[in-house]
Write a protein that binds this DNA or RNA. Structure first.
Length: 529
RNA sequence: GGGUCUAUGGCGCAGCCAGGUAGCGCACCGGACUUUUAAUCCGGUUGUCGAGGGUCCGAAUCCCUCUAGACCCGCCA
């Protein structure tokens, strides 16, 4: 790669934006405003993957602006989605009766938002706010209530036979050859999937439906038997996913939307519907892999399996999230909180490259790294480098110091020569590193076996620590005590680490004991004598 | 049935999307320091880049075929 053919800042986002622009030119569409869209689920607790969808779309918006176009991100919450499953940890709220109702019609069990759906969406929006993403928020419930999609719904229902056949051909799903791709909300019981629409009365813009028992997953949802007609311009209902995107793209004039591979088939159908039925050239796409939970690791157990932005931010900076999401788009990823430390350090490395403190010979890599750094800073990079402290070092230090943590870790960092003066920037890092240490420190309470001879030796050490010994001598003292009492120093040190740190290794023990405080250590050790 | 991704030292991974010196962490070996543990620091070893073919001056990277594994869709959204 040379200077002249670098697109934008040189990363995949720029390439995507340039593909998009090329396509728009070919189509000859107006490019005054290029809208990008991201969908938010509102039926469950938003995973960092849902955040990723919006963050990446925002990246494309930035890339478009960077080359002189106006762009806007629509964050669309599908809060007409029906509640199908009660999320982990929410069984206590008695949501059973609301199963199959649109999440925007279910009261917020936490009582802080106007509905269950809004509560969930807000968690995601809060995450976006915290990492600095700007967006225009729209809700499905308002979109349908205001009839913004009524023309598209009308066209789709008029062509339902053609669409049903095409869905069957493209993805092998035959359901829509029988039913309309539109689900009214039952006027009697407020449920969504139970109302089956069989006929569209074109002149009246109404669908006929009957509320019957239906199966979701392995559960049977009882319908109320109501038969009625729903006005698609007024009454509540929603298009099936296989056609809904297309309606929205056309109505909102969306030019770009990324999607996860799990909805690949839906996108395929929607592209066709958009192009052929609604006569709106579908937006440019990029497909991404889903984030998977780490297999076989215990880390998620205490936390539930959901990695939310909020939880991530307890342990890592907003930039670590942006780095995760902007560094690449391809490739299946197993993701866990244990990835945070390397991302924190990787950001520092990028910053060093950006400010020329690390030399990179390969011009292409240099351009890419700099570009990535700019995107992680949302194309508003800092003027000066921040102070860098290795995040893993911070975690180790915060493991050791639990009391007066900030002050003592800061002092250690100054001792080590990592920093010169206490900095508020570093204070924040110590806080989150401390959170990480507290949450993930393997408190395996390894049963420390202390036999009689060891007890004796420990007692001698406790006495020694309680005397007025100089800290410099602690290391030697321990060694001497072990040796003169026929205990292998190796074993003795190991036992000490186990008692003090809960691990079998650690920092040099003499200075370490004086860091914690001799009296304190003596007290801990005496419990084993 | 349809589709996507992954395969790189002993282990875990980066590099691939825009071809140009195969890299990192852990482990391992050696040295320094330490009164022999540990920690720290310095140095070092480890690779037919899953297999085969193609394009190219040049392929881990691009194209095709194959093998193995993971996941998604074929309820719903």
């Amino acid at each position: 790669m040379t200077e002249q053919n670098t697109i934008g800042k040189g990363i995949w986002i720029d390439k995507l934006a340039s593909e998009l622009l090329e396509r728009e030119k070919e189509l000859g569409r107006n490019t005054d405003l290029l809208r990008v869209e991201s969908g938010l689920g509102a039926s469950g607790i938003p995973h960092i993957g849902s955040l990723g969808d919006a963050v990446r779309a925002y990246g494309v918006k930035l890339a478009l602006e960077n080359v002189g176009y106006k762009s806007e991100l629509i964050a669309y919450s599908d809060d007409l989605d029906g509640l199908r499953k009660i999320p982990e940890g929410m069984q206590k709220f008695g949501l059973e009766e609301h199963i199959a109702k649109p999440v925007s019609l279910i009261p917020d069990p936490y009582g802080c938002h106007d509905s269950y759906g809004m509560h969930m969406s807000s968690i995601l929006l809060d995450g976006l706010d915290k990492v600095g993403i700007k967006y225009e928020f729209r809700r499905a419930v308002d979109t349908y209530k205001q009839g913004l999609l009524k023309d598209q719904i009308h066209t789709i229902l008029q062509n339902s036979v053609k669409i049903g056949d095409k869905i069957s051909e493209l993805v092998g799903q035959e359901k829509y050859q029988k039913y309309l791709p539109y689900f009214p909300v039952c006027a009697e019981c407020n449920r969504l999937y139970t109302a089956e629409a069989t006929e569209y009365i074109i002149d009246e813009k109404k669908v006929k439906y009957r509320c019957h028992d239906t199966e979701i997953g392995s559960k049977i949802i009882k319908g109320c038997g109501h038969e009625g007609e729903a006005d698609i311009t007024k009454d509540l209902g929603k298009l099936a996913w296989k056609v809904e995107f297309a309606a929205r793209w056309s109505a909102f004039d969306i030019r770009f939307e990324a999607y996860g591979k799990d909805i690949m088939d839906s996108v395929k159908v929607n592209d066709w519907v958009s192009d052929e039925i609604l006569k709106y050239p579908h937006p440019h796409h990029v497909k991404y892999e889903m984030f998977l939970d780490k297999g076989g690791k215990k880390i998620s157990k205490s936390l539930g399996n959901v990695i939310t932005a909020q939880k991530w931010l307890e342990f890592g900076s907003p930039k670590s999230i942006l780095l995760l999401l902007y560094k690449r788009i391809t490739g299946a990823r197993e993701l866990g909180f244990e990835d945070i430390p390397s991302l924190m350090n990787e950001y520092n490395e990028l910053e060093d490259i950006y400010f020329g403190r690390i030399k990179v010979d390969n011009q292409a890599k240099l351009t890419k790294s700099k570009g990535l750094f700019e995107y992680v800073n949302l194309l508003n990079p800092p003027k000066q480098s921040s102070i860098h402290v290795n995040y893993r070092l911070l975690i180790e230090l915060t493991k050791i110091f639990k009391e007066n943590r900030n002050e003592r870790v800061m002092k250690k960092l100054i001792d080590y020569g990592v920093i010169k003066n206490p900095e508020s920037e570093i204070e924040k890092l110590i806080d989150i590193a401390g959170n990480f240490a507290d949450e993930f420190n393997e408190q395996e309470k390894t049963q420390v076996d202390v036999d009689e001879s060891l007890k004796k030796v420990l007692k001698i050490l406790v006495d020694a620590l309680n005397s007025k010994e100089e800290p410099e001598d602690i290391q030697n003292t321990i060694y001497q005590i072990a040796k003169s009492n026929d205990v292998q120093p190796k074993d003795f040190f190991k036992i000490l680490y186990q008692i003090i740190l809960g691990t079998s290794r650690g920092p040099k023990i003499g200075p370490f004991i004086s860091d914690i405080g001799r009296k304190q250590v003596a007290k801990i050790l005496s419990e084993y004598t």
